[in-house]
Design a protein around this nucleic acid. Sequence first.
DNA 1: CGTTCAATTGACTATCGTCAACTGGCGTGG
DNA 2: CCACGCCAGTTGACGATAGTCAATTGAACG
Lengths: 251, 251
Amino acid sequence: MNLTDALRRKFDSIGELSEKAVAELESLPLVETAARRGDEVVSEGSRATSCCLLLEGYMHREKVFLNGSRQILAFHFAGDIPDLQSLHTPTMDHSLVATTDCRIALIPHEPLKELTHRSPAIGDLLWRDSLIDAAIFRTWIAMMGRKPAVDHLAHVFCEAFVRMAAVGLVDGNRARLPLTQEQLADALGLSSVHANRSLQELRDAALVRFDGGYLTVLDWSHLRDRAEFNPTYLHLRHRPDFDPERPIPPS
Amino acid sequence: MNLTDALRRKFDSIGELSEKAVAELESLPLVETAARRGDEVVSEGSRATSCCLLLEGYMHREKVFLNGSRQILAFHFAGDIPDLQSLHTPTMDHSLVATTDCRIALIPHEPLKELTHRSPAIGDLLWRDSLIDAAIFRTWIAMMGRKPAVDHLAHVFCEAFVRMAAVGLVDGNRARLPLTQEQLADALGLSSVHANRSLQELRDAALVRFDGGYLTVLDWSHLRDRAEFNPTYLHLRHRPDFDPERPIPPS
DNA sequence: CGTTCAATTGACTATCGTCAACTGGCGTGG
DNA sequence: CCACGCCAGTTGACGATAGTCAATTGAACG
């Protein structure tokens, strides 16, 4: 995906931005770079001086404990700015890792901050993006604290699917989601054994398929009910088009 | 606490704001109001048109599931703006509840937003505040996912203590924290029975006392180690003065 | 073909939840 | 003044969910 498409799709999904504003973002002194699967693009404890705009591929954010256990905090795909928070809190309290090989545009903090001052519409939309990031964290907290593993897993799938649908990364009932079961487990706060068994439950119930790096939703309404999924917290501008009220996508 | 003190202490703890800027915040058309213990000040699903600045008392944010189970997402005290996110994502994805009786100043969105545009220093600091909010959520996710109940509880106490210390709400090794064990359980994602037993462990290990609405830290260094607590994620301007490198506060 | 890494399975253990009973303080009202 | 109820805290017994350990399968890749 190219820069313009990534920016436009992302910002269209959560707000409105004029052509002029998109052009201003593009005119920032971006440096395009690449990362290989597993690379720690930004490390916990470091001080960031630029933000990453993900053009192609998948990334995730994680915290690692002294005993080596790991918690994944978020999954990211094309159009996301996974470390936007570093603009105003530059000391990284977690790491940003390439889930797959990816292409990235680096946006230096200073001109970006200056742009948010010069163009409040851009500033507000970026702020809003960072607030949606936080809303997703809150929802994860609630799911981790109060839902059993299978429901939580169903919720992670619902969220990933809706977020990707919002930026055009879903093809029918299928979306690329190149995660290992261990990464899924690290996101859910589970052991990989238990994540595997939870996946089997969703599979046996014919709600989803998850293999070959793809997530396939077989029964949206039951998946959503199982997860008690309500997309309000994603603060999307348009209601996802496989929403309850609309026909289920072709399977 | 009065408005000026609340604002100044809070913003001093996370950044710098000129006298002029504080005056501009104070000159907003604020409406002071009050809430009683248990009041749902802002409800999930509603659309907010103003933000709450907490002047006195304690509040928390929570999500409630269909089966009635509840997850507390954050605790707040004087100086906090618990629903600052509503400025750019006005549809509430969770509720804001008065933990105790409290005094609140309501800040209407429109003039506040206008002020953030007119004064980028204020806008940036508020944005930063909302990013710290998100950093706290991330840390909660990590603790919930990867730490046993007792360690997690220890972490919640460390965090509350440091955050309160940063705005002058700690007296020696003691801070007011008027939570029931059930609220603590709802924040940790535990049953109240298990929260009770975890508390006993910390008490028996002589790390903290938690009764009468007060949290007393008896052994900071062991509490911190138990929780693997690292205050970086709070992005405070000044290092807390009972930090590892410094002497433990008088007990 | 070996090697490697992800997925899968079984057996056992540990952490945590549920249910139910009981305590103790505290305020209210007879 | 005391009886009562209420609510937070506490305890024991038991069950459910999830973790650990270890072995095996299977696909991808050189």
